[in-house]
Write a protein that binds this DNA or RNA. Sequence first.
RNA 1: GCCUCGGUAGCUCAGUUGGAUAGAGCAACUGCCUUCUAAGCAGUAGGUCAUGGGUUCGAAUCCCGUCCGGGGUACCA
Length: 599
Amino acid sequence: MDMLIEQIIKEKIAKAIFDLYSQEIPAESVQIQNTRKDVDGDLTVVVFPFLRFSKKSPEQTAHDLGAYLKEQVEEVSDYFVVKGFLNLAISSGYWISVLAAAFEQESYGLESATDESPLVMIEYSSPNTNKPLHLGHIRNNLLGFSLGEILKGNGKKVVKTNIVNDRGIHICKSMYAWQQWGEGKTPESTGIKGDHLVGDFYVLFDKHYRQEVSELMAKGLSKDDAEQQAPSIQAARELLRKWEAKDPETIQLWSEMNQWVYAGFDVTYKELGVDFDKIYYESDTYLVGRDEVMKGLEQGIFYQKEDNSVWADLTADGLDQKILLRSDGTSVYMTQDIGTAKLRFNDYKIDKMVYVVGNEQNYHFQVLSVLLDKLGFEWGKGLHHFSYGMVELPHGKMKSREGTVVDADDLIAGMVEVARKTSEELGKLDGYSEEEALETYKTIALGALKYFILKVDPKKNMLFNPEESIDFNGNTGPFIQYTYARIRSVLRKAAEKGLTPKISANIGLKISDKEQELIKTISLFPATLGEAAEAYSPAIIANYVYNLVKEYNQFYHDHSILAEPDEAIRDFRLVLSETVSKIVKTGMGLLGINVPERM
RNA sequence: GCCUCGGUAGCUCAGUUGGAUAGAGCAACUGCCUUCUAAGCAGUAGGUCAUGGGUUCGAAUCCCGUCCGGGGUACCA
């Protein structure tokens, strides 16, 4: 199989247009699509654009071209004209050779990076260290990790990175609350996961703070004044000042509480199956950002106002004025991102930078791109903000302070329980040790959660209903995992019988429409991965795998494999099954989802 | 106000650079396990693709207007 059949047909059509109608057209302009399932044929050529050359009816033109192709292209076994569409039947021999090629390639569909491959850095996760991860972070983490896998599969060099927002007023709030009401509690002394413990103090802070504000307002202060003067917030600000002044005691507490949080995050990251090649900390980058801005000021890229604040004038780029340093000289969000960019640029030879950050930051990244470009970062202009929509709950938005967040750890644990219950009811894992069974429950639970989130177009907001959203039937992760497990089971039984899947280029083999359709879907995998990488969309992979598995299940239902008396057909079906399982495993791997041998 | 993203079945979502009769799953109803795992398969029902125009052989898809919703909008991150 030297060339894809679509390409051969495109070129032949172009030639046919020339031979029949004396008109030159580029082969790439020929539209080929998969034929509708309810019509005969495999591939469809859209003939409408050729009518102005042929000066004939759509039907007549289609017949001309169909006859030409059938004559000239070996793989075209027949053609049908329906409503002006030219539908081509491709010989089963061609499809079998496609299957054989897919079967023999160890990593079918994947490209591996070479020294010349571009290096893509993906920033994702980027948590604050004052509270545990929640559902919104889960979407971020899953998208970021999956995107990394997809780009790797597409032959890019990928560096996954995390910028931890470890400094600022938020962590100082938790620190203050711990000092005041913590009674020396630690994760060890309480048995509470570190990120949750620190998060609890953040909530406690907010409770006291709001109490103080309402008391001050009762004494006649305005809301704004009360919010500024509340003792708690003043104390937190004082801690931030001490931290910036490198007060040893404050730094010590800050460092200790952050360590608790990191230990907690590590557990959650491990459960989610995500990881990073390089972690940056904002406490290391914010001063670098300030230096960069000062340099830009000296070079006249930025300007300073009378109150000493530093600004960028972006009106020439269609944007507004943007503050980069406050009048007191402290840095803002943008300043830190510039500093982080600087460090990354020093550390890696970045060709493309991708930021996985929610869509509420669209404007921020538009500005960042322009600023980095002005500061001379080569990849600044072409940076990609992988902007994803929010996860909404049935009762509205998640708000940490109002306790309406869905905690990541709780969610995962709850789903593992559902997986256990379902599995036990179905009696699927009888004979597994408790350890093996638990591993499988986790695989299923995470598969359900990840697939649910990743199958949705990233840029859209999505709704998550904790009670109803996670299903194990239909268009779900477990459905796909189940199909995989079933194939593995068949292959195990085949191995017990001493059968190894093998395929020869047996052109004479008679295969069913369903089998042929399945191979057609298999043949689409490499192009689908390319599309997903191009579009930065794990959802494209998710929907492809679902479609593949759905077709396999139909095949599985209608055909027997091991009981098939004709050995050549039996072997063919084993190869077909193994190839599907391989693609399912690869495809799910691109989503960061594992597949179980049994379930 | 301005910028930006969305609106597809009761619900959650697909729908490739414009192509044929707009597809899945869930929920509802109905069949199929003495035969490779029924977390499956098959079927019934469910649609003014928000809305009005335009472009053309052809529009859920492209353009313009309107309505509804999310997000952003210069010293929060």
